[in-house]
Design a protein around this nucleic acid. Structure first.
Length: 613
RNA sequence: GGGGACGUAGCUCAAUCGGUUAGAGUACUGGACUGUCGAUCCAGUGGUUGCGGGUUCGAGUCCCGUCGUCCUCGCCA
């Protein structure tokens, strides 16, 4: 007989009656009736009730075992009497009458309960993650993650993609997020960087003649966390294809996403092809480049209506080159005053001076709202006719500079949907955001910068770079978005050195900078590079959506806190002086801050390249 | 770095307008019980109300500071 188990804790049925079996697992719950002891024994597969009777040697010892102790029991499978069947568990018709019980590992008093999935502070869960992971909900999520990753590999292989590993210790690159640096022992004063993504390597693989590459790739970025963004590290399905256009990439990803979301969720998924929304249109209609299409209302431009309005606030906004945008919300007439007050406070927190709105009562009664009296009949009627507006609706109005208004209206749209719970439920709404601008102007300095990825091919190629206003040039750059979560960015890459140099020149970098920072890639492009493009969906985010979670940490086995700490391993930590010496590093720590605005005196010892934004 | 919310027993929460000995569930310890399955019943242990200061006759409650946690903005090629 196997030393630890003959069956799992979810296998036994009435057909096993009379067999002598062995089970190992954790004590999930214990019920002590004095003369008889019931233990729910749990393993990764399920729970089986085992019964200890007082005539067994182990009876007294067993009574004092705490939950979550690990035991091995040997005994006979018995059919439970009709009245004692537990229909809640698959093994509920049987139980194991214990002959022998071996304690493999006894448990201390638990800092958090495994069997009761009550709320526990996340810091506690992370510190005792090994206990937290035992809970059924976490087991399911980690299992789901495993299956999703397996399916991704299977699908990608089926579509003739090759999985290829790329280096983890690599070169710091000046653009993008802050790098995690690794000091070199062999080369004093030099550092490796952990890759923010295998971007350059995958492009090199295209040049190397592997036309379909993928990798479940760890990515490292030293940036602050969000609910849907893990600090430090995360995983991407990194992929790249040679001799493709944008639609070819879309087709592969749509096929993959549809497969994953159909397989691992019951919710309906957007039919392929997913809608393609140009960036500027997304900013107009949703005030965001990751629009949540489950929200049934949209932003509308009403600058025309107010161009010659008597209401000076709106008119002057338009005259000064700004815009007026409307966000009509149907069926809100009955909302309490606190609704609009709360939203006004929200708008102010986000930098607005105020929040104008008009309520159109049902039956055509007197209009409500602070600006109603300043607006003319014709203007009000036009607002009322807007799609989504009309009787019973509240029409919010925002005026000012276009980018600001668009963004604020977008945030307001999501906030209102949250407050009124107006999301379409149990559905996955995908879309592509396409036609990102190649460059953007930094507001303070007026400097032209890459708006997304410097490796994207500008639409129109060299001709566009030479002849168009940089701010009008679009890139073959795209995002895929699901329910307001950005799953991925990608692009058709710029594989032409001449176009690359020119693009960087527009962003203010001369050729030598390009050669220095991206020398490997530029050199590769001079020896015959195929046109190529790709994308890199976030694996954690995909699993998060499939698990219907809003925090990415729920689908990562050992996540860091938003403060970039691992509470279980206690990382980051100090290292020994010997280790530092070997790495040629001397610490210069900031003063412990006592009062506010403590003067910053420390400068990084070396600053190899000036990081752009 | 900025803003917001929160912080009471190991954990989840309660405590009237600032009022007298800070309660309950769970966990833990002991006891009772031979058919439970979130077992039940009895008893017990467990608290510097995050920390520091202030206001007050009196502070878990009000004020200031600080620390921690989460959310968010900046940031995320």
């Amino acid at each position: 007989m196997n030393r630890y188990s003959t069956h799992t804790c979810q296998e036994l049925r009435t057909s096993h009656e009379g067999e002598t079996v062995r089970l190992s697992g954790w004590i999930h719950r214990q019920r002590d009736h004095g003369g008889i002891l019931f233990i729910d024994l749990r393993d990764a597969h399920g729970v089986t009730q085992v019964v200890v009777r007082p005539d067994r040697d182990c009876f007294e010892e067993t009574k004092h075992l705490r939950v979550e102790s690990v035991i091995t029991v040997t005994g006979k499978v018995c059919h439970r009497p009709e009245e004692n069947i537990n229909e809640k568990i698959p093994t509920g018709e049987v139980e194991v009458i214990v002959d022998e019980l071996e304690v493999q590992s006894s448990a201390e008093i638990l800092p958090l309960q495994v069997a009761d999935e009550n709320d526990v502070p996340e810091s506690m869960r992370l510190k005792y993650r090994f206990l937290d992971l035992r809970r059924e909900s976490m087991q399911k999520k980690i299992m789901l993650r495993s299956q999703v990753i397996a399916s991704i590999r299977e699908q990608m292989q089926t579509m003739d993609f090759m999985e290829i590993q790329t280096p983890i210790l690599t070169k710091s690159s000046p653009e993008g997020a802050r790098d995690y640096l690794v000091p070199s022992r062999v080369h004093p004063g030099k550092f490796y960087a952990l890759p923010q993504a295998p971007q350059q390597f995958k492009q090199l693989l295209m040049v190397s003649g592997f036309p379909r590459y993928f990798q479940i790739a760890p990515c490292f970025r030293d940036e602050d966390a969000r609910a849907d963004r893990s600090p430090g590290e995360f995983y991407q399905l990194d992929m790249e294809m040679a001799f493709v256009e944008q639609d070819d990439v879309f087709e592969v990803i749509e096929r993959l996403m549809t497969h994953l979301f159909d397989k691992y969720s019951d919710w309906p998924v957007t039919e392929t092809p997913f809608p393609r929304i140009p960036y500027r249109e997304a900013m107009m209609r949703y005030g965001s480049d990751k629009p949540d299409l489950r929200i049934p209302f949209e932003i509308q431009d009403v600058s025309e209506i107010f161009k010659e309005s008597d209401f000076r606030v709106f008119r002057s906004a338009v005259e000064q080159g700004g815009v007026v945008r409307a966000l009509p919300i149907p069926e809100t007439e009955g909302q309490p005053r606190s609704f609009v007050d709360g939203l006004e406070a929200f708008a102010k927190e986000n930098g607005a001076r105020g929040l104008a709105y008009v309520v159109f009562p049902k039956g055509g009664g007197k209009l409500k709202g602070p600006v109603a009296k300043y607006l003319g009949e014709a203007e009000l009627e036009k607002l009322k006719q807007l799609p989504g507006c009309g009787e019973g609706a509240t029409c919010f109005l925002l005026a000012g500079a276009e980018n600001f208004v668009a963004q604020l209206a977008g945030r307001l749209r999501v906030e209102i949907a949250k407050q009124l719970d107006r999301f379409e439920k149990n559905v996955y709404k995908f879309c592509w955001i396409v036609d990102y601008p190649m460059f953007e102007q930094e507001e303070e300095t007026g400097k032209i910068e890459f708006s997304h990825n410097p490796f994207s091919m500008p639409q129109g190629g060299m001709d566009a770079l030479l002849n168009k206003d940089p701010l009008d040039i679009l890139a073959f750059q795209y995002d895929i978005v699901c329910n307001g979560v950005e799953l991925s960015s990608g692009a058709i890459r710029n594989h032409r050195p001449d176009i690359m140099y020119k693009a960087f020149e527009i962003a203010g970098y001369d050729n030598s900078v390009v050669d220095k920072q991206f020398g490997g890639m530029i050199r590769a492009f001079q020896f015959g590079a195929p046109p190529h493009g790709g994308i890199a969906p976030g694996v954690d985010r995909i699993v998060m959506m499939l698990a219907d979670e809003t925090s990415i940490r729920e689908v990562i086995a050992f996540p860091m806190t938003p403060g970039a700490e691992d509470l279980l391993m206690d990382a980051p930590s100090e290292v020994s002086p010997e280790q530092l010496k070997e790495l040629h590093i001397r610490l210069e720590l900031p003063k412990p801050k006592k009062q506010k605005n403590a003067p910053q005196k420390t400068e990084p010892g070396t600053s190899p390249s000036s990081a752009t934004s």
